[in-house]
Write a protein that binds this DNA or RNA. Structure first.
Lengths: 185, 185
DNA sequence: GTCTATAATAGGATAGAC
DNA sequence: GTCTATCCTATTATAGAC
């Protein structure tokens, strides 16, 4: 039996859509209410501490998504190059070819960033670790692997910022395309 | 005679300090009032359209700063390597070794980004152009130069996001350190 | 140009019925 | 779990004196 689609997940995904577009501070309770189709009180029923709880839930949901769709596949079957390419496909879709900004960046930059320090650090660390492990698997020395993995995440986040700043997603496409070479050498 | 220090510049710098820390949406008029030492009405006297005008002024001020402190020096005297190193020093100081986030990124990600599209694109473009011209000057083919210049800005912005996300400015330091090599080959 | 005072609105959050 | 109604505060913005 396939796992039930929990409506909570659908709610959280809609919350994420708002926060990733306008940021934590730009996302008002009314906007989140409209986006989810839930009244304000219903939102507070699900998230007693309001917006902060919602953003935490979004981060937890995103962490699960990334683990399942990015980090595990990086450790899965196939050649290192194939696995990197799979990550790139997933990222390209997730960020709508560069049109969507990164929820993580939104929460890093928002005024409430202090409240999300731990989950943000965990997600970024896991991402870097998964990439570094893959590179070690590909025969690259651990120290080099770590630097390159970190650099890859840096480039992905930076490309999303620059795509927004230039109003041109080309830079995101080019950055993704270069990733296999910059990672695997 | 040295140019007079316009108090307006001091006001705008203080506005910038707030916006770069908490973002456009996180920066309330009262916070901006406190930071500048001006009453709310005085702020509206200087910036009739409120926060939007303030952010525009911050962007114009930043553009002038970057032109004088970054872009012109990139076209100035000295070997290409020296000029890149000068840019890195300026960036390291401006971003407080990675502890400060980027105003540009804050405005790209904020909910009012549509209102800042033109100045943001102009600043990022000028930055990339200045770097690309330097690389051409160093004997690198224009197409390659452009890609590398774009990649450098991508890395700087990404490193600032990741430094915030990891709570560790090491990644910013490492990224800056690698810049001369990644730019000049 | 700056201030105090004030309006008008939006935001976050809760109470209590269903 | 969801809703309507409501509360309180913060926020944006303006008026008008100095």
């Amino acid at each position: 039996m396939p796992p039930a689609i929990h409506p909570r997940d659908e709610i959280i995904q809609r919350l994420m859509r708002v926060i990733r577009r306008v940021g934590y501070d730009g996302a008002s309770i009314s906007a989140l209410s409209k986006a989810t189709g839930l009244g304000k009180s219903s939102l507070y029923h699900h998230f007693p501490n309001g917006k902060h709880d919602m953003a935490r839930a979004v981060l937890e949901h995103l962490a699960e998504f990334l683990r399942a769709q990015l980090f595990e596949p990086l450790r899965g079957a196939g050649t290192p190059k194939r696995r990197v390419e799979a990550m790139i496909s997933t990222l390209d879709a997730f960020y709508a070819e560069g049109h969507e900004s990164c929820v993580l960046a939104q929460l890093v930059l928002g005024s409430a960033r202090a409240g999300f320090h731990a989950p943000l650090r965990m997600i970024f660390s896991e991402w870097i670790d998964a990439l570094a492990d893959l590179l070690v698997d590909a025969g690259i020395a651990r120290a080099t692997a770590r630097r390159r993995a970190e650099d890859a995440v840096v480039r992905i986040e930076g490309a999303l910022v620059l795509a927004g700043g230039l109003g041109d997603v080309g830079v995101f496409a080019r950055t993704l395309k270069q990733l296999p070479a910059t990672l695997l050498g």
